[in-house]
């Protein structure tokens, strides 16, 4: 799955060449699935397999955040709370109501999607920093509510969340769990590609750039804002549920603090805000860097915050954007040269 990044820029004039592109895409996906299927077997130890699971969960999370923040341009700081809602819903359903994972996960996704619609309501009236503040307020109240609620484990958290089982087999190793997470991550990425390349993706980008012009072009701005929040919440809910059921099956309100949100923002911004690959690249890079620098925990947030600021200032399109610019610009420079600057 490597031929996707610059596809958006492929000249539509060459419609005749579409079947070739389709075959290439299919091949890319097959190759991608192949590599991903054997990846955990190449990992040297169980910790690396845990890291693989974590990366994929973060990919799901970041891809979702990129939809609402990167594409639709809604500055939300509430994404981590949506993940918490997914995780807690799934955990409560599994531990208190005996839901199997396969039922807890979709239920959690549903509940989180609803919560996403609510988080999105302030976006009808607020923009930019104000929207960030409003969503931050919502997010923190979710976390504080959890920390203070005994039924939700309060500040102790929830333990012994059962892992998924398949045909009586408990998927409680990082290796077996990988085969739960990986297909979901892959599906999530595939769906995001489809969404973002369709009308919906273009509507998101249009309302990010100029809501007024988008509305005048016939786009229902409130509908698409809500849709962006709900879609991103679906991803957050799924990631939350996956994180909850991963061995050792433990969740704690401190996993959903502002620091985690900053890390999440870093993934999207560094990977390429509004780039179709942004969340994916960012989640991989940041999760690995985060892990490598665990020993310097005290400085992590400082550095991450600085990297965010520097990225926004000096490479606003992130890694994805740099790759794109390299490929795309060269084509246009050639075109410009050939054409001269008309009009």
């Amino acid at each position: 799955m490597t031929a996707h990044g610059t596809d958006e820029a492929a000249p539509a004039a060459t419609t005749g060449a579409k079947p070739v592109t389709a075959t290439r895409h299919l091949l890319a996906w097959v190759a991608g699935i192949g590599v991903l299927s054997v990846l955990p077997w190449l990992a040297v130890n169980d910790y690396h397999r845990f890291l693989l699971d974590l990366i994929l969960i973060n990919v799901i999370l970041a891809v979702g955040l990129n939809i609402v923040k990167g594409f639709a341009g809604q500055v939300t700081v509430g994404h981590i709370a949506l993940m918490a809602i997914g995780a807690y819903t799934s955990a409560i359903l599994a531990t208190k109501f005996g839901f199997p994972f396969w039922l807890a996960l979709p239920s959690a996704v549903l509940v989180t999607a609803l919560a996403g619609a609510i988080v999105g309501i302030p976006s009808f009236r607020l923009e930019g920093a104000y929207l960030a503040l409003a969503t931050l307020g919502l997010a923190e109240s979710v976390r504080i509510f959890i920390s203070a609620n005994d039924y939700l484990g309060a500040s102790i958290g929830i333990t012994d969340i059962p892992p998924p089982s398949l045909f009586g087999l408990r998927l409680d190793t990082h290796l077996s769990y990988y085969y739960v997470v990986m297909p979901l991550a892959l599906a999530g990425v595939y769906f995001s590609f489809c969404i973002l390349r369709s009308n919906t993706g273009r509507a998101f980008k249009a309302l990010r750039e100029d809501p007024l012009a988008a509305a005048a072009a016939g786009i229902n701005v409130q509908k698409y804002k809500t849709l962006a929040f709900v879609l991103s919440a679906v991803y957050a809910g799924c990631a939350g549920s996956l994180a909850a059921h991963m061995t050792p099956g433990f969740i704690h309100p401190n996993s959903y603090m502002l620091a985690e949100m900053v890390t999440l923002l870093l993934m999207v911004i560094l990977g390429g805000i509004g780039h179709i690959w942004g969340g994916i690249i960012g989640a991989i890079v940041v999760t690995i860097v985060y892990d490598l620098t665990r020993d310097y925990y005290n400085y992590q947030m400082l550095v991450f915050g600085m990297v965010i600021v520097l990225t926004v200032m000096y490479m606003p399109t992130g890694i994805g954007g740099i790759i794109d610019r390299y490929i795309v610009t060269r084509r246009f420079v050639a075109l410009r040269k050939a054409k001269g600057d008309a009009a």
């Binding site: 958006e8 820029a9 009308n199 273009r202 509507a203 980008k205 750039e209 012009a213 016939g218």
Partner: peptide
Amino acid sequence: RIFSQMTVLENLLVGHQRHT
């Protein structure tokens, strides 16, 4: 008020959205 970060073709596609 064109969408300057979108491609020329995408600008038109946004306008055409209601016919999808």
